[in-house]
Write a protein that binds this DNA or RNA. Sequence first.
DNA 1: GCTCGTTTGAAACGGTCGTTTGACTCCAAT
DNA 2: ATTGGAGTCAAACGACCGTTTCAAACGAGC
Lengths: 250, 250
Amino acid sequence: MPAGPFPPHAHLASRATLHAKPPPHATHEKLLLAAGEIFAQRGFKDATVREICEQADANVAAVSYHFGDKAGLYAAVLEYAYTVASERTPVEAFFAHAHTPEARLRALVELMFTRIVDDGRPSWHGVLMAREMVEPTPALDRIVAQAIAPMWERVRAIVREFLGERATEDDIDMCGNSVIGQILHYKHARPVITRIQSRSVYSREQVNAWTRHVAAFSSAGLRAARAEIDARPTSTTKRTSSAKRQGAST
Amino acid sequence: MPAGPFPPHAHLASRATLHAKPPPHATHEKLLLAAGEIFAQRGFKDATVREICEQADANVAAVSYHFGDKAGLYAAVLEYAYTVASERTPVEAFFAHAHTPEARLRALVELMFTRIVDDGRPSWHGVLMAREMVEPTPALDRIVAQAIAPMWERVRAIVREFLGERATEDDIDMCGNSVIGQILHYKHARPVITRIQSRSVYSREQVNAWTRHVAAFSSAGLRAARAEIDARPTSTTKRTSSAKRQGAST
DNA sequence: GCTCGTTTGAAACGGTCGTTTGACTCCAAT
DNA sequence: ATTGGAGTCAAACGACCGTTTCAAACGAGC
């Protein structure tokens, strides 16, 4: 246990019970910022509290005092990054003027690209989430419930618009995976992409080009998927296996 | 330095000079197999030589003796995994009966899915490569040159068939990214997919369904990309190539 | 000025990591 | 029988990790 009988990180247990005392102390916030940057760079396991505290001009004991332990600091960073990302990249702004399915798809692609390949500044929320996908920590369940699941429902809603009423849950999932898989690829495979595709520099203009491409590519894929779904024989009960005549257009 | 004056791992420097003496000793091979499995599970940094040696029924000093150090063992595992994967999943077999662009695309998707979500047995080559994409080690340059770049050229060749002569290098790269991004997503985002899409169990049948979907989705996306490319205004120099007025419906 | 809860600081603790040590076994060649 | 290199083993080394300790510094209320 830390020094004080009621250390600040005990607020994790009793959040809103105490009369509005979120600790806005300097060290607390400096640790949050430094930890966010280094966790995003190295991941939870490879990041060391010594490097975080060095960058925050704080003592190593400060992590234990303010956040309990390294995992508590990580959870606080995720919480902080989520609120910051929600404020800086509000979802409504991206979908405000999107009145057609194509426009909503385009807005979704742009939103995800913005959140994920946006470097610098306290915007490592997308980076931390992308890391959690690949090497999950015990905090993944909370992240999924808080951030990923709502976004995924939004993806599914847009995909459903394209696929129509006869689409199965598997159809929607696979098409949603195709859309966001294209986007996340630029994040996950970045070390390889920069080595193989020398023209890609992850600049603002390049990301805009990727956005246009992914939106157009996905739109065509979704329309083709709907055509195939509508061509399926209407069965009395639900059939998962596609044992039907594949009269492909080619 | 290890015990012997000419330890086995010196073969890294002088490969083919000595008259055909690859050490086929039991410990050497057991270490390779155990290390491949554990490196694929935990990644290079999180894998410990103690766990590897325990699984291989070998002493911790065996790593230093046979491979120099942990990085040398990792490099040997990559080399071994590459040859095993090339033998077990020969590229030619997948493209043998693919005589149309659609068939070649389908074969490519099937090949990559097979190599990447294929669990168990000494087939962790795709798993190790997927890991290197996300958290690269100093071995990434060699992997790119040896395995990824050739596969990427194959992807580009297939994409080029779809896009036609007027496609730019950026067109080909973006479309190639869209195809393999869909596939790799099922590998990279597996922890999230299994939590959100409860129907996905990564079974053989499920992977087959993903293969069919990604091939169809990509085929439609590529055809749409070609239509958009062909509808682009031709440059001032040359306009002979029959700019067919494809209905560029956006 | 004193008190007491809050926050910081240098140092150390216990643990795990990759790697090394040096004695040991085995076995083919002398 | 002896030699000497190849390979194995338990044990230890040094480095780094997260975390803890405890004294010192701080700052508002009396």
